[in-house]
Nucleic acid binder design. Structure first.
Lengths: 210, 210
DNA sequence: CAATTATATGAACATCTGTTCTTTATAATT
DNA sequence: AATTATAAAGAACAGATGTTCATATAATTG
């Protein structure tokens, strides 16, 4: 952390993210936020131009999500060499979202506003989904050249790898809202990696007949 | 159709579903609905007790979704015998959602209110997801006994089969909102079935060493 | 035809919303 | 210490919302 002391502006953002992720952007009133921050509604306007501005700041925060930073700073070749373990670490990142308050709230905010807010939709599509799919697709391509995984359409494989992760995460979200047990859902992240790898890794027979 | 003439009540539901699925329940005002129906806001109250009642009626309509009626009336054994083609027909049902106005609207309504409305969440969880997963799981179990597919955890397989279908459908929704091309996304439904079947069907070698 | 029910209207309502304004208190800077 | 910027409060606003009410018209029924 740059500054251990939380500014009021940061507090407002924190509270807003919490409320937006719980009730959605529109149903959360400026009064709700102010009350939880501990000031009056009008006081908010000393820190933000308006409710929109708060959302805008949080939208920018979406880029700090663990999902956006999945492959941060690492080269494709480097990652491809890791084999199954890179897939495992991706799945773990998704799984851990629900154990980290901020990441969970960001993901819930994203999901709730996806159909309503075109900016959020753009960020989701570009940085949460497409960027990751493309990067993983490149990794798969190298793995195929290295005979680590079987030859197939790498882009399709990337879609197939990511889609259950997003979906399972959403499911965990929903179960948590109703305080239902989500433990069996959480185990799916790892099982997904295992079965995905079993289905796509090069087996002895495959390389023998190559 | 029972009656070819649309009653005003049906028209209100139709318009409301359209608007709710586009803008969400809360952001859609009673005035919006009335205007598109062609009456004044107060006139709506001769047909429905309130805005809530309209949503309630539409929630009941969710049960008519193609996703809920996936396995309607057919026995597990019968379906298991169909092999790959049952999976194909499931995937096709999902794919066709975006080509049928009402089904598409119901799915969008569902997705938009999932985080906000606990009744919708219950229906989704029970009838859209769990019921289908369990039924498919039973089908997989029989397929395993029949040596049609490889032995594995049938419940996990069902999760892995369904999750991309839901996710791809959501993706198609989102792309359509922004009028972006979704053709490459739509092809994933069939590819998913193909690869799923290739990964799980019993091959010659499997049965040979049995 | 008369009576009743169903449907429509327009005005009004209370409530909630985001925002602005003026004024007061606090903190930072000179 | 004086000045200036920052943050807070409280009241008020204009607009939108769901709903109600009294009333008028149309449709149905006896």
């Amino acid at each position: 952390m740059a500054s251990p002391v939380k500014t009021k502006k940061e507090l407002i953002l924190e509270v807003s993210l919490k409320l937006f992720s719980e009730k959605g952007y529109n149903p959360t009133s400026v009064r709700d936020i102010a009350k939880e921050v501990g000031i009056t509604q009008s006081g908010l306007y000393n820190h933000f131009k308006g409710k929109d501005a708060i959302l805008e700041a949080l939208i920018a925060d979406l880029m700090t999500s663990a999902v956006v930073k999945l492959f941060e700073n690492k080269s494709i070749e480097e990652l491809a060499k890791k084999g199954k373990s890179i897939l495992f670490s991706i799945a773990t990142t998704f799984k851990l979202i629900s154990f980290d308050k901020k990441n969970e709230a960001l993901f819930k905010l994203l999901m709730q506003e996806l159909y309503k807010n075109s900016t959020i939709r753009d960020i989701y599509n570009e940085h949460f989904y497409q960027a990751n799919v493309k990067k993983l697709s490149s990794i798969f391509f190298i793995m195929m050249q290295d005979e680590t995984i079987k030859h197939a359409d790498p882009l399709f494989l990337a879609h197939e790898f990511f889609s259950p992760l997003f979906f399972y995460q959403m499911q965990v979200n929903l179960l948590k809202i109703d305080k239902k047990s989500n433990s069996s859902m959480v185990t799916l992240f790892e099982k997904h990696v295992d079965s995905f790898w079993e289905n796509n890794k090069v087996t002895k027979e495959d390389s023998f007949f190559e």
